[in-house]
Design a binder for these strands. Structure first.
Length: 258
DNA sequence: ACCTCCCTGGCC
DNA sequence: GGCCAGGGAGGT
C-alpha cells in the first residue's frame, strides 16, 4: 500500500465522515494523495500522507476494509471507496456506521485523537506504570481495560480473554492490582493479542469483521471465555459466567479468576 | 464517574 | 415486532 496514490476518493455517508465537516471534504482532501506510511495506535488506523496530513480510520463495531479490483461488486454499506493508481480499490464497509474515515492535519490537532494511552501491542506499559495508572481507581478492572486513555487497543473480547488468562476477576477494583498481577495481566494481554493477530483476528458469527481479502479470521475458535457463558472453563471445567460491566457483556470463570 | 445514545442485521 | 451486540462521545 505504501507508495500507492489514491487517485479518486468517494465518501457518501455523513456519519462515516463525521470527524470532518462533510463527506465531500474528506474525499477532496484525500484525492490525489500518496500513501507514505501505514501505522496504527490502539484502534485507530493511521495512513500517513506526507505534508502533515494523516488519514485516520476506526472500524467501530462493524467496519472493515476491503482491497479488491476496481470493478468488483460493491457490498452493501460501502461508505468509502478509494481508487488506487495500480487499479485496485480500497473500500470501507460499515453497516452500523460506528466507524469513521477522517483526514486531519497535524497543525489542527483533534483532542479526541490525542487522549489515547500507550498502544497495548506496540508499547505496553511496564507493570509499575500500569499500577500507577490504576492507583486509586475503584472502577472494575474490566471497565478500565476498555478505557482507551489508560491502554489503547483492547476491546471487549480481548479484555475478557486477557483477564481470564491472567486469572484476575473482571470486577476487581482497578486500584487493587498488585504489581505481580499487573505483570501477569500485561503478559496475558500480549499473549492474547499475539494469538489473535497470528490467527487473522476474531470473526464472529455475524461475519462483520473480515480480513481485507475477504477471508474470515480464525481466532474465534481460540477464545477461552468470550461468548462461552454456561460452557465449561477450559482450565477448571466450571461453567463460564457472564455479567455486565458498563453495559458490556463480560465473561469470566468464577474459580480461575480472583 | 456514570448513563444514554447512536446504528443495523440477525435472531427469537 | 422487539431486543441484542458494542466503541466512543456527550451530557449530567
Amino acid at each position: 500500500m505504501v507508495g500507492r496514490v489514491m487517485e479518486r476518493v468517494c465518501l457518501t455517508h455523513p456519519r462515516t465522515a463525521r470527524r470532518n465537516r462533510s463527506p465531500a471534504e474528506v474525499g477532496r482532501r484525500l484525492a490525489g494523495r500518496e500513501v507514505v506510511n501505514v501505522g496504527r495506535h490502539g484502534k485507530l488506523l493511521l495512513i500517513g500522507l506526507g505534508d502533515g496530513q494523516t488519514m485516520v480510520a476506526h472500524l467501530g463495531m462493524s467496519g472493515r476494509f476491503s482491497v479488491c479490483a476496481a470493478g468488483a461488486d460493491r457490498a452493501p454499506h460501502t461508505h468509502f471507496v478509494a481508487a488506487l493508481d495500480d487499479g485496485a480499490e480500497v473500500r470501507f464497509i460499515d453497516p452500523r456506521t460506528f466507524g469513521f474515515v477522517a483526514v486531519r492535519d497535524e497543525s489542527e490537532p483533534d483532542p479526541a485523537f490525542s487522549r489515547l494511552g500507550p498502544d497495548a501491542w506496540l508499547e505496553a506499559p511496564e507493570p509499575p506504570a500500569l499500577v500507577r495508572a490504576l492507583a486509586g481507581r475503584v472502577a472494575p478492572l474490566k471497565a478500565l481495560l476498555l478505557d482507551q486513555r489508560i491502554i489503547a487497543g483492547l476491546g471487549n473480547i480481548y479484555a475478557d480473554e486477557a483477564m481470564h488468562r491472567a486469572g484476575i476477576h473482571p470486577l476487581r477494583p482497578g486500584g487493587r492490582l498488585s504489581e505481580a498481577e499487573a505483570r501477569r495481566l500485561l503478559d496475558a494481554t500480549s499473549a492474547v493479542l499475539e494469538q489473535a493477530i497470528d490467527s487473522g483476528g476474531t470473526t464472529l458469527g455475524d461475519l462483520a469483521y473480515l480480513l481485507p481479502d475477504g477471508r474470515a479470521g480464525e481466532n474465534f475458535a481460540r477464545l477461552k471465555v468470550y461468548g462461552r457463558e454456561g460452557e465449561p472453563c477450559l482450565s477448571c471445567g466450571v461453567p463460564v459466567e457472564r455479567t455486565a460491566v458498563r453495559a458490556r457483556s463480560t465473561y469470566f470463570c468464577p474459580v480461575c479468576q480472583t
